[in-house]
């Protein structure tokens, strides 16, 4: 999520920032991993976070948010591959995610989505509507925490009743809440002049 600031990265327009990060992510994912490459990538990430003025504390927060992802990836890979290979793979993924987070941290969602809509502009010729796609992206970002909240509610309700958590008993109420929410949201969209 966006953190206001006045750094070079904050002032760089969304389009170029997005392209640069995409290019870097591609390079880091495709080029065969060498310790040097990884060390360089990590240095780059640290450097960029320092450059945002948000500092290493923000980097730490981002890493903490990734801990489950890291664990989920690490266990199977460490079991089926070797530990060093697993470490290399995961470092790559984490570096790419941290770079992507850098874009969202220093760009207003609005600007980011404008840039995406502009990039999708050529698709207009094929009948796609970039503004609608952009709106959908924004609404997805808005809705993720809401659905997460529903999930927490359902889990709490089940825990309160002492029901052992079964997948179906979890998914059904969650789905009902999500559908009701999307109905309400559709009304709000219409009322605010989107058709």
């Amino acid at each position: 999520m966006y953190r206001p600031g006045g750094s070079v990265l904050h002032r760089t327009p969304a389009g170029p920032k997005l392209l640069t990060v995409m290019a870097l992510a591609l390079a880091i994912s495709l080029v065969p991993a060498s310790p040097w490459l990884l060390a360089g990538a990590i240095a780059l990430v640290i450097g960029c976070y320092l450059l945002t003025g948000l500092g290493l504390r923000e980097l730490g927060r981002q890493l903490r948010d990734l801990r489950w992802l890291i664990l989920v990836m690490l266990v199977p890979q460490a079991l089926f591959l070797s530990l060093p290979t697993a470490a290399v793979n995961i470092t790559r993924v984490v570096v790419v995610v941290l770079l992507a987070a850098l874009v969202t941290l220093t760009t207003r969602t609005e600007d980011l989505i404008d840039a995406i809509a502009k990039a999708l502009g050529p698709l207009r010729r094929f009948g796609a509507d970039p503004d609608r796609i952009a709106l959908m992206l924004s609404m997805t970002i808005t809705t993720v925490p809401v659905i997460a909240g529903f999930a927490a509610q359902v889990r709490e309700a089940q825990r309160a009743r002492g029901v052992p958590v079964q997948p179906l008993a979890f998914v059904v109420p969650l789905l009902v809440m999500a559908l009701k929410h999307s109905d309400d949201l559709a009304d709000a969209l219409t009322a605010r002049g989107v058709d």
């Binding site: 924004s138 808005t142 709000a188």
Partner: peptide
């Protein structure tokens, strides 16, 4: 509408 959550369309307040 009644439901405060279902009227927010964009991610941040100003947006």
């Amino acid at each position: 509408f009644s439901n405060p959550d279902a009227q927010i369309i964009m991610p941040t307040v100003a947006e």
